[in-house]
Amino acid sequence: MIEKSIKLTLFLATGAFLYLLIYNGTLETYIHPRFSYLTLVAALGLFLVGVSYFRADGDLAHEHRSVAWWGLLIIAVPVVLGWMVPARPLGATAMNTREVSVVGLSSISASGSEDLTMARPSTERNILDWINLFQNTQEWSGFVGEEVDVVGFVYRDERFGSDELMISRFVVSCCAADGQPIGLIVRADDASVWTDDQWLEIRGTIELGEFNGLTLPLLMADEMVAVEAPAQPYLYP
C-alpha cells in the first residue's frame, strides 16, 4: 500500500512536471518544440499509469516484486532537479566545452533552401540563415554591405579582441543534448561593454575582415541593444 502510494505520487509528479513544462513554455529550454505533443501524451500516460496502481487487480499484474528505495529515489531525481533548478537555456557557459563554429570550420550543414533564404530581405535572416549562406559559397564578397538585424547572446573566448564578440545561438535538432552553437563575429568599439550571456539585438552591415588569421565575413555593428531572452531560445535547422 505504501509502495503503491509512492509510485502513484512519483508518476503523478513526473506527469505534472512534463505538463507544466508545456504549460509554462519552458519545454523549449529542453527539447525541440515539434516533440511537444509527445511530451503531452507522455504526461497523460504517466497519470494513467499512476492511477492504474489503484485500479488494477494486483494478482493479474503480478506485483509481488517490490522496488528498493534507491530505485524509487532515482525516479524522483528529474522532478526534483526540474522543479528546484531554474530552467536556463544553453548559453555562453555551455559553449566552453563545445566546438564553436566560426565560418569555415562549422559543422552545421544547410538544410533549408538557399534560394528561399536569399529571397528574404537580409534583415529578416537569423544567425543560422547567415551561417548557411556563408557556408554554401566561398564568394563572401557578394554579401558585403548587406544589412543585418539579428538576436543572440554574447560569447567570447581567447580568440576575441577587446572590440570583438560573437553574437550566438544554439541550434537544436532534437533536444538540448545535441545543441550546437553558431555565431557571427561582431566588431564594435563598445563590444567590451557587454557581459557574456547578455542577449542583444544587433543591427549592422557585413564586411570582410581579418579574424584570427582568417579572412571572414564580419558583422560591423551600428547599433547594439540589450533585449530579453527570446521565448524560443534555440534555432531549429
Binding site: T14, L18, L21, L27, T29, Y30, I31, F35, L38, T39, V41, A42, G45, L46, V49, P78, L81, G82, V85, P86, A87, R88, P89, L90, G91, T93, A94, C174, C175, A176, A177, G179, D197
Partner: peptide, 27 residues
C-alpha cells in the same frame, strides 16, 4: 555563480535527454 551556471547546463542537458526519451520509454 559560474559554478552554478555549469550545474544548470548539466541539468538542461540531462532533462533534455530525459524529457525527450520519456515518451518513448513509456510507449
Amino acid at each position: 555563480e559560474s559554478v552554478y551556471a555549469r550545474f544548470q547546463v548539466f541539468v538542461t542537458i540531462f532533462l533534455g535527454i530525459f524529457v525527450e526519451a520519456a515518451p518513448f520509454l513509456l510507449a
